[in-house]
Every structure is written in structure tokens, then in C-alpha cells.
């Protein structure tokens, strides 16, 4: 019996020595060849929504970013918006105004009143955007990683600043799934070579070393080979990257009787059942985390240039706009 107790003590001791992961270290710069400034058109029309594939309709064409908003894009926004006075620095946070939500006093519903709310903390571990000499800068190597530690208010502030919006859940779902009943944006299978999720941790640790970067650069899984790691293309039918895995993405809906905001797409911390196109997460609009980001949508009238893009499964006449930075 003493031996048994000794074995348990040894195991506990070994377990408490496990290596701590540091996420704020520099990471290597990776060129994916994917341009995060590109947008793609999602045509109006019916599609299969959620797990039970009920037919739903999107009434108008809209555009959506082909990748999540990156750290570089968000840092640029904060620098511009602070200068213009639409958002402001408050101690070690960025805050902005929100006009408040409709409140019905429903069970478990919290009142979100008009006021200034947290958009992003910039001093916290996990954030890759730092305030240095009055300007927001991104940790080395993280420019093209999706922005994280951003609240729903922070996502909305970004979208509002540029005249965009956060996609609704239905818009997001159609952009991710297209018009068939696939489970993942790229098809009906998943493996460590096609997206950054709970089961690709080992593969990415081998690639990035012991200090895993956690997020991968936007559009990283595009069929390109990095060192000895061959990725598969995880484009959705309309050509969007990272619609399953990497980071959860805030969606725009403010539903009645709840204060929560919702997220789609799953993240690097989640196993495959959270990566499917119908997986849903939620939190208060002021919540932020190392695995939550967003991308933007906009109405079609705002487009400037159009090109034709052929995706892996459907040929879509797609409008792509190059934003001037």
C-alpha cells in the first residue's frame, strides 16, 4: 500500500512540473500568401442552416472579409480611432461608447445601458497589441494573426469605424457552409493539416516549437507547405479562410431577452464538435479571451472593384475589394 501512495505522490509531483505555455513571446513571421484585406461576395438566396439543415434565406447579397481581422488591422484602427476621438485609452484598456441594448428584464437577462465599454485590454497576457510611445504596435510575428482579446463592443467599434458591420449568425453560416449540407467549411472531414483546433496542437507544437503560438496566421491552412508541414486548403465554398478553427468569431445579432452575444466557428482550444459550422458559443458583450476574434461584413453598395474568383467546390462570381490601407 505504501508503494501505491508513493506512486501517486510521484505522479502528482510530475504533473505539477508540466511546462507553462507563454503566448506573449515573439513568433516567427510566416508568409501565407493570403491577403486579409480582400472581401468576397455572398449571394442572396436560400441555404441550409445549422445542424438540422433547415432551409433559410438571405435576402440581400453582402460582402464578408475572407479572413478574420488581424492584429495589424486592429492596431491600425485603434491608432486612427484614438486620433479621431471615437474611442479612448482608459488606463490599460481601450474603451468606446455603446448606445445600450433593448432590455426586457427577462430571466437571466442583464441590462446593457448606454455608456462606455471595454473594447480591448492591451496590457494583459494574451494580447499581442501593445501601447508603445503613444502608438499601438503588434508583437513581432503576430501582425497577420487574428486579433484576439477583443470584446463584442471592440468588434463593433472596428466595424462602425470603417462603415462595416459584424455579420449576423445567418450571414456567417451561409458564408461558412455555402448551399450544401457540409459539416465543416471545407467539407465533411477534419484533421490536423486543415485547421488550427484542439487536435492539431501536437502538429503545431512540432512546427512552432515548445512555445506554441496558439493562433495561426489568417489563411495559414491554404494548401501551402511550411517547413515540413503540408497544410490543406480550408477555404469555405465562397473562399473564406478559418471559418472553422483558429479563433471564435463574434457575430452581430442582439437577440431579445438575452444580453449575450454569440460566436461561431470554434477555435484552437476546441475539439472537432466545436468546429462544425453550426457550433455556437456565447458570452457577455464585454467578454474577451485569447481565442475570440471577428471578421466584418458590409452591404454590397459599398464595393469598389470586382473580380471573378473560382473556389474549390463552387464557381462563384465573386466581388473582391481591395481596401486601401
Amino acid at each position: 500500500m505504501k508503494k501505491l501512495i508513493f506512486i501517486f505522490i510521484v505522479i502528482i509531483a510530475l504533473a505539477s512540473c508540466s511546462e507553462e505555455v507563454i503566448v506573449n513571446s515573439e513568433t516567427k513571421i510566416i508568409e501565407t500568401g493570403i491577403n486579409p484585406n480582400e472581401w468576397v461576395k455572398i449571394p442572396a438566396g436560400t441555404f441550409y442552416y445549422n445542424m438540422h439543415s433547415h432551409e433559410e434565406n438571405i435576402e440581400n447579397d453582402f460582402e464578408i472579409m475572407i479572413t478574420d481581422v488581424t492584429n495589424k488591422q486592429y492596431a491600425k484602427f485603434m491608432n486612427e480611432a484614438v486620433k479621431k476621438g471615437t474611442i479612448k485609452i482608459d488606463a490599460d484598456s481601450i474603451i468606446g461608447y455603446h448606445p445600450g441594448d433593448e432590455f426586457n428584464g427577462y430571466l437571466h437577462e442583464w441590462e446593457i445601458q448606454a455608456g462606455e465599454y471595454l473594447l480591448m485590454p492591451f496590457g494583459e497576457a494574451g494580447s499581442h497589441i501593445k501601447l508603445t510611445n503613444g502608438a499601438f504596435k503588434v508583437d513581432k510575428g503576430y501582425d497577420m494573426h487574428p486579433v484576439v482579446m477583443v470584446t463584442w463592443f471592440g468588434a463593433k467599434a472596428y466595424a462602425d469605424f470603417y462603415g462595416y458591420r459584424i455579420p449576423t449568425e445567418k450571414e456567417w453560416a451561409k458564408a461558412a457552409r455555402g448551399t450544401d449540407k457540409r459539416a465543416y467549411p471545407w467539407g465533411d472531414f477534419i484533421n490536423e493539416n486543415i485547421t488550427n483546433y484542439g487536435s492539431s496542437t501536437n502538429a503545431l507544437q512540432r512546427l512552432f516549437g515548445g512555445n506554441i503560438a496558439r493562433t495561426t496566421p489568417v489563411g495559414y491552412f491554404n494548401g501551402k507547405k511550411y517547413d515540413n508541414f503540408q497544410t490543406e486548403d480550408n477555404k469555405s465554398p465562397y473562399g473564406l479562410y478559418d471559418m472553422g478553427g483558429n479563433v471564435w468569431q463574434w457575430v452581430g445579432d442582439d437577440y431579445p431577452d438575452v444580453h449575450y452575444r454569440y460566436m461561431r466557428g470554434g477555435s484552437f482550444t476546441n475539439y472537432e464538435y466545436n468546429i462544425v459550422v453550426w457550433a455556437r458559443n456565447s458570452a457577455g458583450p464585454d467578454f474577451y479571451n485569447i481565442n475570440i476574434g471577428f471578421r466584418c461584413a458590409r452591404d454590397i453598395k459599398d464595393t469598389v472593384n470586382t473580380v471573378n474568383v473560382v473556389t474549390d467546390s463552387v464557381a462563384v462570381n465573386t466581388i473582391v475589394t481591395n481596401l486601401k490601407e
Partner: peptide, 19 residues
């Protein structure tokens, strides 16, 4: 509270649970 600092706890608890 900060997820970024949870890794050590996660590794330890997972290892103990598996064991």
C-alpha cells in the same frame, strides 16, 4: 481567470485525470 495562464493547471489536471 486569465485563460492564457491556465495551461499549467490544464496540463496537470489532465495528466492526473488520465492517470
Amino acid at each position: 481567470p486569465q485563460e492564457v495562464a491556465q495551461q499549467k493547471l490544464m496540463n496537470t489536471t489532465m495528466l492526473l485525470a488520465d492517470f
